[in-house]
Design a protein around this nucleic acid. Structure first.
Lengths: 238, 238
DNA sequence: GCAAAAGTGTTTTAGTTACACCCATGG
DNA sequence: CCATGGGTGTAACTAAAACACTTTTGC
């Protein structure tokens, strides 16, 4: 049995016009099964590496590894007929590249909008959409935004990144407040120059931490963290 | 390369005394590498099945499959040296069994408290703890409680289950309210008989849905679901 | 000055925790 | 009738969304 690793590498990219969009790096197959269709980068797992080392190695051919801001396992795809011919089990990954970096990619690869995926090889389209779902969920309850954003950014920029990734308009005001309250944003002191239309110069921010951390672990059923607010208030009548 | 599937099957079990505890089904190895240590049930992936079908098949030897209330992928464990000898990549699963059912398990298997795991074979201890973490997280933002609880239960019972799974005391009052508001609890009409100490008979409830569903998807950054609350309230002076 | 964009102050809303109190049963 | 556990009513608290308003720039 062959084990392969695949990665849906996502990035929010600015097009020449219109708002930025969430995209996935796809590669046009040159070999026979599903020749010409778009597929996720990846390849065989080697004997001396675990799956994460493997996907990082294989991505190095497409994207400079240092540009990958986040990599995490998605799931195993193992339907016996997921690819024709001898069986191949795949471990799929989500990879993220910050906005702004534009990696040199080979001729046969391109960034495709997740909202308008082309015909993909095998189950790669489904994997890419799973990656998007995972990203959307984690943006809400972790600090994963750091993996989408450049080192320094304005709140407006960040709002655009979140909006593109989540698929709906996010308010800059509230984004600022929520991320600040959680201690994720730090002003760098610098300011951005306003556009030709004017406007107050925006302050620059950066994320405080680099690694992923859960910021909102308990939606409910919080453990009784704090000691009672009012210390023994009950009266003792006689 | 060999691909195996492993499952951490968890259940909240009542001991003869003390509060119920979260336990995992382990099996004592009879073969040479790590002989005598406790390990997770599972085995080789066969050519004609995907990983979920495989783990369900293999668990059928230990636990009646119909008693499994939930099965989900955890992660791939693929360190080259995770088991001695020829390489084995493992797909790990979380499995749940409702409280109350006591499956016939083979002689060489037993339920072990997750808070006091014995010496386990290979990386199986780490896998079991990952399963516990996943369960704890999902209890908070999904309806996964249905997979821990029996068909009918009192709120007190449910409180005990959640407390055991989460590892901290949960308030029955608030558990009732949160699950009710989310539309997950339905009174069955029946009542439980009070214990010998008396007390008001508790109403019986059941979960409304069977499949897992996310009940609290957005901790923050909620999409702008509802239309504006006040329709155009601004006064037009002049 | 005016439009545009950024940022802050304040109100509203929602959901959960905390806690007091009432209810029904066994002895 | 009282201890025990079950259940409800309500206040307190937290966090986020909504929105009005101020600030700072280009033209």
């Amino acid at each position: 049995m062959v084990h392969e690793v695949l990665a849906a590498v996502l990035q929010v990219r600015y097009a020449t016009s219109g708002p930025p969009t969430l995209r996935v790096l796809l590669w046009r197959r040159a070999l026979d099964p599903h020749i010409g269709r778009w597929s996720l980068p990846g390849g065989r797992l080697r004997p001396d590496e675990d799956v994460e080392a493997s996907i990082r190695r294989q991505l190095a051919e497409k994207v400079d590894v240092k540009q990958l801001s986040h990599v995490e396992q998605l799931a195993v795809f193992s339907a016996p007929d997921r690819v024709p011919g001898p069986r191949v089990v795949a471990t799929a990954f989500l990879g993220l590249v910050p906005t702004g970096v534009d990696p040199e990619v080979p001729e046969d690869t391109a960034w495709h909008e997740l909202d308008a995926l082309p015909r993909t090889a095998f189950d790669h389209g489904a994997i890419a959409l799973r990656a998007r779902d995972r990203l959307r969920a984690k943006l809400c309850y972790t600090n994963l935004g750091f993996a989408l954003a450049p080192k320094e950014f304005t709140v407006s920029t960040l709002r655009d990144l979140y909006s593109a990734a989540l698929g709906y308009r996010v308010s800059a005001t509230n984004l600022q407040r929520v991320l600040s309250r959680r201690g994720l944003l730090a002003p760098t002191g610098g300011t951005a120059v306003p556009g030709r239309a004017g406007g107050r110069p925006a302050a620059l921010y950066s994320f405080t931490g680099k690694g992923i951390q859960v910021t909102d672990p308990f939606a409910v059923f919080r453990p009784p963290a704090r000691p009672p607010r009012r210390p023994a208030r009950r009266a003792a009548p006689s």
